[in-house]
């Protein structure tokens, strides 16, 4: 399976297009980096890929390889769980502050004890309120929430930008291990070139498109 964005165009103000005829493909199990200076629509593309906003023109879809031919067959998105999931930069906003962490993590389905351990989440944190945990811990929850069989592609928009280097390495090691075991595609969006080079098998520069 692969995720394809075809001829995407989008602009916030009239006349000024942030994205113009952008084409982008991620194969399953592939880790692709996406870089560009600020203001080139990295985050906008991320939101379009994950279905948060509709592009003005163009389409995002999943494709499955056909057995007989070398062509691909389009898979329509269903109404339920979106197989393309987005992780934001600020986990505080991605978690309802009025929910305890147990409810937050089980909104999608309680992960196995093994996964909790791999993500470095302590059992006792599940009984806490989000305000009692730090950004690094909250981001572990956000990542783990998206790491389930239904997610085929993960878009990480500056996922670890606000975290310290050790937590950053921990979270990325978790995501990369999971992605290679479950053949999940990952899009890494970051302004940090060293990080993108470290993580990705392929890097796309949005200014070159």
């Amino acid at each position: 399976m692969r995720l394809r964005a075809h001829n995407i165009t989008y602009g916030y103000a009239k006349g000024r297009k942030i994205l113009e005829n952008v084409n982008f493909t991620v194969e399953e199990g592939e880790v692709v980096g996406l870089t560009a200076p600020s203001g080139y629509g990295k985050s906008t593309l991320a939101k379009i890929l994950a279905g948060f906003i509709k592009p003005e023109q163009g389409e995002v879809f999943l494709e499955k390889p056909e057995k007989a031919e070398s062509g691909y067959k389009r898979e329509p998105f269903s109404m339920g769980y979106n197989p393309v999931q987005l992780i934001f930069q600020h986990p505080e906003k991605a978690i309802n502050p009025k929910w305890k962490m147990r409810k937050v993590i089980s909104e999608v389905g309680m992960p196995s004890a093994q996964m909790l351990k791999a993500a470095g989440i302590k059992e006792e944190w599940l009984e806490r309120w989000p305000a009692e945990l730090s950004g690094g811990e909250l981001q572990r929850f956000c990542v783990l929430r998206a790491l389930n069989e239904q997610t085929r592609f993960l878009i990480a928009d500056e996922m670890t930008t606000m975290l310290d280097a050790i937590t950053q390495a921990q979270i990325w090691n978790l995501v990369l291990t999971y992605a290679s075991e479950h053949r999940m595609g990952v899009v890494v969006i970051s302004h940090e070139k060293i990080l993108v080079d470290r993580l990705c098998t392929k890097v796309v520069d949005l200014t070159q498109m």
Partner: peptide, 11 residues
């Protein structure tokens, strides 16, 4: 743990 170094995290 820096991405430019070993990118290895302690527990």
């Amino acid at each position: 743990a820096l991405p430019g170094e070993d990118f290895e995290a302690i527990e």
